[in-house]
């Protein structure tokens, strides 16, 4: 059976430290937009930590949840793309073929999670910041959409490593940059088709909820609700 990558985010563990946010930028060659563009809503963060203030002083509570692409099984972003730039790959990921994208931005509208990002300008790095760029991840030119890939490049490396060692991939061997960095262990990644994997076990907990389940997107990210 093929793999089905999925993630569990435990909101009871999440501290909102945003290590995942920087880890993602570093791993995926996300260019910074700069102040004026960021102020226009053009900052790119494939994963963001949403915050909610609840209650009135002094009975105030804060909630947050990290939101990357939910890698939906029934992703609204996929059918709307006229050029198949947005498609479902064999392991269930919502992949984006940058070279095929012509920039209709239709997928971005269709995504209920606002998890897709557009390159408004040609990305650039002040020299020598370009030396930090990850050679495993292509950069995206102006006019194309981009999004969270579950750091698929990491999965590919781990798979070829396992293949070279003639062994199956171990649970927990593959983790996207956000999961890898998470100091409080709030994020767990793995194969949902493997019932023994940590992610499958956690996704089945009573605390598990999907974001915007009512939209019918069947996300592959399960949030474990906070217990207070």
């Amino acid at each position: 059976m093929s793999r089905r990558w999925g993630m569990v985010i435990d909101l009871d563990r999440c501290t909102g430290c945003e290590a995942c946010v920087v880890a993602c930028s570093a791993e995926n060659n996300i260019a910074t937009a700069g102040e004026s563009q960021a102020a226009k809503g053009r900052a790119i963060h494939w994963i963001r930590v949403e915050r909610s203030w609840e209650g009135e002083f002094p009975n105030v509570r804060v909630r947050f949840r990290p939101v990357p692409c939910q890698q939906c099984d029934a992703a609204p972003c996929e059918p709307v793309c006229p050029t198949y730039a947005s498609y479902h790959n064999a392991e269930g990921l919502n992949a984006q073929v940058y070279n095929r994208c012509i920039g209709t931005r239709y997928c971005a509208n269709a995504c209920p999670y606002t998890g897709r990002f557009f390159n408004w300008f040609q990305p650039s790095w002040d020299k020598p910041l370009q030396l930090q760029l990850n050679p495993d991840v292509s950069i995206r030119e102006a006019g194309v959409m981009e999004k969270c890939t579950f750091c698929y490049q990491r999965a590919l490396v781990a798979e070829s490593q396992a293949e070279a060692e003639k062994r199956p991939l171990r649970d927990g061997e593959v983790s996207p940059a956000c999961v890898q960095s998470c100091p409080s262990g709030a994020m767990v990644f793995g194969d949902l088709n493997d019932p023994a994997s940590a992610v499958s076990r956690l996704a089945g907990l009573d605390r598990g909820v999907k974001l915007l389940e009512e939209v019918g997107t069947f996300p592959k990210i399960t949030y474990l609700a906070r217990e207070s």
């Binding site: 563009q37 226009k40 809503g41 053009r42 920039g103 931005r105 971005a108 606002t114 990002f117 557009f118 390159n119 408004w120 300008f121 040609q122 102006a142 006019g143």
Partner: peptide, 11 residues
């Protein structure tokens, strides 16, 4: 220059 010269943004 890119679509950035428009007022469009995310979302």
């Amino acid at each position: 220059w890119g679509m950035g010269v428009s007022g469009l943004n995310r979302p």
